[in-house]
Nucleic acid binder design. Structure first.
Lengths: 212, 212
DNA sequence: GACTTAACTTAACAACGTTAAGTAACGGAG
DNA sequence: CTCCGTTACTTAACGTTGTTAAGTTAAGTC
């Protein structure tokens, strides 16, 4: 462990310092307050210094996304303990909406903003349910299909995952984008979440669904 | 009709000229290309001239939203002819997703971007199903409830409207934000739309739902 | 015909992302 | 020890952005 390793370590340290500063600004004042100059102020470097560690602002935000995405997926693994796949699906749905509600800025950046060139150097572990929320949900649906808990014609686990994802995404993203809109007499988000998830589970199961 | 009226009319003309220029830029090159200067170029005025007709850029965009929102709602009225409320609901769902798919920029601005101060001078005709898509969907659900087509415990038409809106919004907004993300093996949007709507209708109706 | 006001233009400001050019410190080679 | 090149920065600047202050011109009013 010569000076070579030390430099490497220091480099990594300042990288995470930049990311942390961005994240803080981001969570406390919203995306539009995350400017290179304000990040630089926080870490007491010049704005240009950031470019030595990240190609540009987009790359910085993309990495922030990736990191938080992984953490996001990780908190789902606790739900893997739920035995019944449909109950597990319900729990994931609620956890998803809850995450979005507690981290509006993050959610907005991750799922509501078309990234210019997505997945350019995303080093996420695709397919691994520990780090990939999509794969986690899909595995639930594969299990539910195998256990014949779903209607017979529903066989495409990917399609089901995408539609159920759409369902919970719709609830939370509409909340984030339109909560302050007095145009609509919004029902509490908890009620909307519950009905949406109930509706979806009832919509894909066969015959008499168990009342929750 | 003296010069007073003429001036008023001219004022209105340039207002719509500004809005049209913004809309064109917007639809052809995306939101980020809509700058005050480029709008000004198009209409051959100085950028400052715009401020005489709109308080700021946000107000301009808000008015553009309002206008297109109204037109959006208007195209639903054609579906009022469908007799069966559940079939009408399905048709509205598909029309909604279709609109978003054909007008990505508009949809993004209208429903995916938290407006700073929403509904500040929105002069939309609230409650009028001719101009208010929300009211149109709600009226369908009121009808469905009255006809006892929905499960007995579903009595809150507003809650139902909001959740169904979330469902279709989820499909199209995820498409807009994440279509270019190769992370997921996306199924065609038409399939996702169909399943989402089927799932929702099945999820709120009682017992055996008619197969489409 | 003087005066007010509406409808602009020109010039500028501050903040933004980003880059070019310069500088100081460090690690290894001769 | 000295030279040298790389690494990690800073300062200054460029081109854009939204927005405003100050000046100008034309039309309508009394």
């Amino acid at each position: 462990m010569g000076p070579r390793e030390r430099r490497e370590r220091e480099r990594e340290e300042i990288r995470t310092k930049i990311l942390d500063a961005a994240r803080e600004l981001f969570a406390s004042e919203g995306v539009e307050s995350v400017t290179m100059r304000r990040i630089a102020d926080r870490i007491e470097y010049s704005p240009t210094a950031i470019y030595f560690h990240f190609r540009d602002k987009d790359a910085l935000l993309a990495e922030l996304c990736d990191h938080d995405f992984r953490e996001f997926a990780h908190q789902f693994t606790a739900l893997a303990a739920i035995a019944d796949p449909l109950e597990r699906l319900r729990a994931v749905g609620h956890a998803y909406i809850d995450f979005g509600f507690r981290n509006r800025s993050h959610y907005r950046l991750m799922f509501m903003t078309p990234r210019a060139n997505a997945s350019r150097d995303s080093q996420l572990a695709k397919g691994n349910p520990e780090e990939d929320a999509y794969a986690f949900v899909k595995s639930i649906l594969v299990e539910a299909i195998a256990a014949k808990r779903l209607r017979a014609e529903l066989t495409d686990a990917d399609l089901l995952t995408q539609v159920i994802w759409s369902g919970v995404h719709g609830v939370i993203s509409l909340e984030i984008a339109k909560a302050s809109d007095e145009w609509v007499e919004w029902r509490p988000i908890a009620e909307r979440a519950k009905l949406a998830i109930d509706m979806m589970v009832r919509g894909i199961t066969c015959g008499v669904a168990k009342e929750q």
